[in-house]
Nucleic acid binder design. Structure first.
Lengths: 352, 352
DNA sequence: GCATACTTGGAAACCGGTGTCAGTGTATGC
DNA sequence: GCATACACTGACACCGGTTTCCAAGTATGC
């Protein structure tokens, strides 16, 4: 019953020419056609031409499912992420697709819920079901070592993106968040600020720890002594930025500058300042991190750290698929990217 | 050479149990295992149990490529889009994935460039190569009839999303943009505005035309006579919103309220107003469209039209995959969604 | 008790490609 | 002129599932 149903529902689809049709019309064997498709060098140019003519005539396109079965691997790259920022995720997708352009690989997206206890099992089911060629892991979930081990266990290639230490260039594409944040904080200090607060990312995230470390290094280097509660925690969302800003601005004395660990939270800080009748940058300087679209689009335009996520994603994807054909090239793909400060209008010297 | 290389590169991957292993260990034939997997009713419950035990023991998962080959269809849904708004695209992905949750379908994303002359050929290559189960088309590219015909021609199921007329409920999920914009414009009129400008979307887009029609209906119903140049064109980006706002605010007299055809452009209007020292909503009222994250995140929070894109995407996906198993259910899936006004803080009566 | 219908399970073909290996035809070496 | 090497091609098995077809077992009707 169910079987019949399924059969009839596919019956209407147009029958496509197969490799057998091509072989028959060209008067050669399947294998020869396969050789033409795969650019084998062991081929008489006359035969190749004849087969190619038939292929063009028929509009033959190899069936990727059959290929995947015979080759015991498919051409799907997975993107596993739980990043809350839409622009970041889309930028990553863009970078990956740039790298995949012209190849036979396609991108399958898989958002997951970091907080779900079933997350790991969910990913396990996904990976064993689909047997992807490989996966890319986006921060913050890329920091989860269990996930990386799961990939190893299931024999699935993977590349992690993030601000982690450069301990494994084959599986990691990273950026120098720590130095970039130090630079940004030093910029605030150079502008004359000494009451500088930090809104950090969630505890347990390497990116959060790296950014905090950069902040603290700069503060320490300047010999500044900060009140303990000048470090607030957020969870990378706009709302958490508002909440953290309100906590900080209620302090006595309040900070004259706030570094938020991503743009989303920085936008929340600007929002909270506006709500309180404080103007940015006159009453409060703000710096964000990421340089996503929102940074340029709010008022005032946000001074922020540009995180080169698109090149990072492209590089990660090349590393992943390059691994298949050209290991050397894949290994040569850069694993480390530099973030840098973008100066816009949300920073000014503190009012005397 | 190349063949050898490929073979060796896959050799390291863990060998997974196949249906043959299960059959052998359970002491039954492949077909019986297949029947268990596919929940066929023609099975002794004792046999089923035995097979299921072996499946669990081995951790057997059917190979989707082999299934796809045998069934002559795969389990991939494509999302073809050229939407400039990250939040919209991600919301759509979220809606689709909610619908696909628990099914064997996966989502493949495919951004395209609407302006490229190769776009159609690009999509054709994509569709004939991958032989997807079906595709979802996002606006604005969903309005391209050539694309829909291409899907028909290639025998690829499709569902279009957009603000188009409800002419084909099997292939379309739409919203009532026109009425929603009329409502929003009427709200501005009720607040006392009569110098109301429109920033419309690009010519040739049905969504742009629908929204403009709603605007004009409201203006006409109120008996307002607008200067011709109170309708400016944008292209749905933040920057085009700034440019259009500057053109409008340079007019004499300038508008006291601006309706922008999406939030991105509305944010640009707010940005431009701030740059000119105008405050929103005191000196200028602004309404957007979409209710994406940016609407709530800029200051002041944007009054906007909520476009129920997530439920629309979910419904579109259900329509697409439901089509396979349960035509009736798919047809029953709603094809029409209501947009409604969300009142925030960017609208106030005009200053006397 | 036997014919019949209905379950249940297996053998073999098939989906559309790729890998292995043997066979043919031509160039080269002696 | 014959043996050998090499380039090219095809027959066939195989990837891991589903489907067709048939046979055997079992329940039911008479």
């Amino acid at each position: 019953m169910a079987e019949q149903d399924r059969a009839s529902s596919t019956a209407k689809r147009a029958a496509k020419p197969t490799i057998n049709d091509v072989a028959r019309l060209a008067g050669v064997s399947k294998k020869t056609v396969s050789r033409v498709i795969n650019r084998s060098t062991l081929l008489n140019s006359e035969t190749r031409e004849r087969v190619e003519r038939v292929i063009a005539e028929l509009g033959y396109v190899p069936n990727p499912q059959a290929r995947a079965l015979a080759l015991r691997r498919n051409f799907l790259i997975g993107l596993i992420h739980d990043n809350p920022n839409a622009q970041t995720v889309l930028n990553v997708q863009q970078g990956i697709l740039e790298a995949l352009q012209g190849t036979e690989f396609e991108l399958v997206v898989r958002p997951v819920d970091r907080r779900s206890p079933l997350m790991i099992e969910d990913v396990r089911a996904f990976l064993s079901r689909q047997r992807l060629f490989g996966v890319l892991l986006l921060p913050p979930i890329s920091e989860n070592d269990v996930l990386a081990e799961l990939c190893e266990e299931l024999g699935c290639r993977y590349v992690r993106m993030g601000s982690a230490q450069l301990d494994d260039p084959e599986h990691l594409v990273a950026s120098n968040d720590r130095e970039a944040v130090r630079e940004a904080t030093t910029y605030l200090i150079d502008q004359g600020h000494s009451l500088i607060a930090l809104i950090e990312g969630p505890r347990g995230f390497r990116s959060a720890a790296e950014r905090r470390a950069g902040f603290e290094q700069a503060i320490e280097a300047a010999g500044i002594e900060l009140p303990r509660n000048f470090i607030a925690e957020g969870n990378y969302t706009f709302e958490s930025g508002i909440a953290a800003a309100n906590r900080l601005l209620d302090l006595g004395p309040p900070p004259t500058a706030i570094f938020a660990s991503n743009d989303e939270m920085a936008a929340g800080v600007v929002h909270a300042a506006n709500q309180r009748g404080l103007s940015v940058p006159e009453n409060l300087s703000v710096i964000g991190f990421d340089d996503t679209a929102i940074a340029a689009h709010i008022w005032p335009p946000l001074t922020t750290v540009r995180w080169p996520i698109i090149p990072m994603a492209r590089s990660a994807a090349l590393k992943l698929v390059g691994n298949a054909s050209d290991r050397a090239k894949a290994a040569a793909e850069p694993s480390f990217f530099l973030s840098s400060l973008v100066r816009r209008a949300s920073v000014a010297p503190p009012r005397p």
